[in-house]
Simulated scan of single mutants.
Amino acid sequence: MSISLKEKLAELIFEYDKLRFHICPKIEDMYLLSFGFLECEAYNLDIELEMIKRYIELFNQGEDLSKIDEMLDNEFEESVGMLEKYMGELDLAIERKDTHFELSEDDLDSLNSLYLDLIYKLHPSFNPVQSIYEKDLFEEIVEAFETYDLTSMRSLAILIPEGKTIFEDDDVFIKSISQINQEIYNIKNSYPYNKKKILDDEKLFKDYKIQLLDVVANDYLLIEEYGKKLDELI
């Protein structure tokens, strides 16, 4: 027996939220903890190398030495900002590693099952006309799902108004199914989900780590080379 449009939509909403709140954050943390240090080092060295090259270029153009450092700061401000942002994300991943909480398999099944049931009762796709109370309640339910808080979700489920009816409109469901399928496609083809293949494939994992190590080693050699050229100029 084929599932109804209503069931298909609910399952897609659940898949979408599971990707956003559970699967992708874990992939991102695993990726950052596996490669973040090397990527930060490679990016930092790349910035340093490009700054030295640019310093030499500006010097040869006759720029005032007293102004070159300020010019470089301005030119590389965005790159340095991106590096600092990435380093901050790595720090957060390290913090989460020490505080990560996992539900037991049975409790995780209960969390997923209860959330799927509550999608029918309060998700806007099934309840387009909601009171402020219902909107706030569902936001708290989503937060409980995101944080694996089964106890809170069970408590919140009790607060759902009695006699809540589910919206029925196949045309609306078809449109929503198409939209959510697109959102799921977008997630699976962007960061961090697109790093899953590297994490899951031992050969790709090792090859990428070797590639990063080669980049770092090569950048150190180039920085030394260009650093000597700069010393000769000034």
Score class of each variant (00 low, 15 high):
176 S>G: 04
154 R>P: 02
128 P>Y: 04
7 E>V: 14
10 A>H: 05
86 Y>D: 06
178 S>E: 15
203 K>Y: 14
86 Y>A: 10
157 A>Y: 03
95 E>L: 13
42 A>D: 05
56 I>D: 02
46 D>N: 12
92 L>S: 12
178 S>G: 05
115 Y>K: 04
75 E>W: 00
164 K>P: 08
98 D>L: 13
227 G>W: 03
101 F>Q: 15
59 F>S: 12
114 L>F: 00
135 K>Y: 00
96 R>H: 09
18 K>F: 02
230 L>V: 04
27 I>N: 03
234 I>W: 11
92 L>C: 09
46 D>T: 07
186 N>Q: 11
41 E>I: 02
200 D>C: 10
116 L>S: 05
183 E>S: 13
88 G>C: 12
32 L>P: 02
185 Y>M: 12
203 K>F: 13
219 D>V: 09
231 D>Y: 07
6 K>V: 03
87 M>G: 11
3 I>Q: 09
134 E>T: 04
204 L>C: 13
131 S>H: 07
128 P>N: 05
182 Q>Y: 10
159 L>H: 10
24 C>W: 00
213 L>Q: 15
56 I>N: 04
77 E>T: 05
21 F>C: 09
222 L>F: 04
87 M>F: 02
130 Q>C: 03
35 F>P: 00
143 E>V: 00
66 S>G: 12
21 F>I: 11
228 K>D: 13
25 P>Y: 00
210 I>N: 15
54 R>A: 09
73 D>T: 06
156 L>T: 07
47 I>T: 09
16 Y>F: 11
139 E>P: 02
81 G>C: 02
28 E>V: 07
128 P>R: 01
173 F>M: 09
121 K>S: 09
161 P>Y: 01
19 L>W: 00
130 Q>D: 06
225 E>H: 09
115 Y>A: 04
44 N>R: 14
132 I>Q: 12
213 L>S: 15
50 E>M: 13
62 G>R: 06
152 S>Y: 00
5 L>W: 07
226 Y>V: 08
143 E>A: 07
208 Y>W: 01
93 A>F: 00
35 F>K: 01
10 A>R: 03
16 Y>D: 15
150 L>M: 06
92 L>N: 08
14 F>R: 07
198 I>W: 00
217 A>W: 01
153 M>D: 01
200 D>H: 07
31 Y>M: 06
65 L>K: 13
139 E>K: 07
